[in-house]
Amino acid sequence: MRYFLEIAYDGTNYHGWQAQPNALAVQAVLDDCLSKVLRQPISTTGSGRTDTGVHASQQFVHFDAVQALEVQQVVFRLNRILPDDIAALNLYQVSEEAHARFDAIARTYHYHITLTRNPFKRYYAWYHSRALDVQKMNEAAAILLKYEDFTTFSKVKGDTNHYRCTMYEAGWRQEGEELIFTIRANRFLRGMVRLVVGTLADVGKGKLTVKAFEQIIAGQDRSKASGAAPAEGLFLAKVEYPDQDA
């Protein structure tokens, strides 16, 4: 029987989501804990990958179990043995064909910038010592919705077959001394959001004009994008599926 597990995690101490040799990853820890709780080997498939230091307030994975599960009991027992920086939120029985990655229709990321030095946000926001022009950053962010090819914001050695994404939302809002960027699309390229944020920040600092930002996108030249924003400010915030109530 196939199940979708909804989790959240603080990525500070992990080398990203995907299990890998000689490095601690969220997936490996989750698989190990699930295997212990269910007393069978469990291998999860995530809705997507997050890089080293990136967080998730909502991530979905699927896995197969040989027997029907008491979902509330599994969530309770799983949370008892998971480390404090990973939480099981909900468990859903789904069809055998359901796929956490391929069935997702949209993903939302949030990026946090703090304008004041705050020791309690050092792992969860990018600190900027000077103000950014939020209006210009939003003018530039709106341009993202006009394009589908985001080669400019892809890692050079990516493993994707194409660089097209359907963008649904992109914009900044200010809450006190914090700027929060929301970006929503059907899919994202590896490292894409951090490259977008880094380039938008250069617009906010006056290093790039809004027109130059659009030229960078249209040029499809990775070398023209700014440096990637730090990982600690990035959160995978929502993963959407057809007919999803969660």
Rank of each mutant, 00 (worst) to 15 (best):
R49L: 04
G191W: 05
C33T: 06
L30T: 03
V94E: 09
G219K: 12
Y168L: 14
E177H: 15
A246E: 07
V74W: 08
G171V: 07
K207C: 11
P242V: 07
T152S: 15
G233M: 07
H128K: 15
T116N: 11
P242L: 04
V71S: 10
G11N: 02
G176P: 11
G219Q: 10
K211C: 00
R117W: 07
R2A: 10
T108C: 05
T45E: 10
P21Q: 00
D221R: 07
F63K: 12
E148H: 15
H162G: 03
I7G: 03
R130V: 15
Q93A: 14
T116M: 11
N22Q: 10
E240A: 12
T44F: 07
A68I: 06
L78F: 09
Q72G: 09
Q18W: 00
L234A: 04
H162A: 04
G233N: 09
D243A: 09
K238T: 05
R190S: 01
R77T: 03
I217A: 08
N186G: 12
L82G: 03
G11Y: 05
L30C: 05
H110D: 06
E240S: 14
E240D: 10
T160L: 06
E232S: 09
E97Y: 02
A225H: 06
N138D: 03
L78T: 04
G204V: 13
K157H: 12
A104N: 02
V74E: 04
R194P: 05
A231Q: 09
H55I: 01
T116C: 07
G204T: 11
R117Y: 13
Q58N: 00
F4R: 13
Q58S: 01
A170Q: 03
Y163L: 10
Y9S: 04
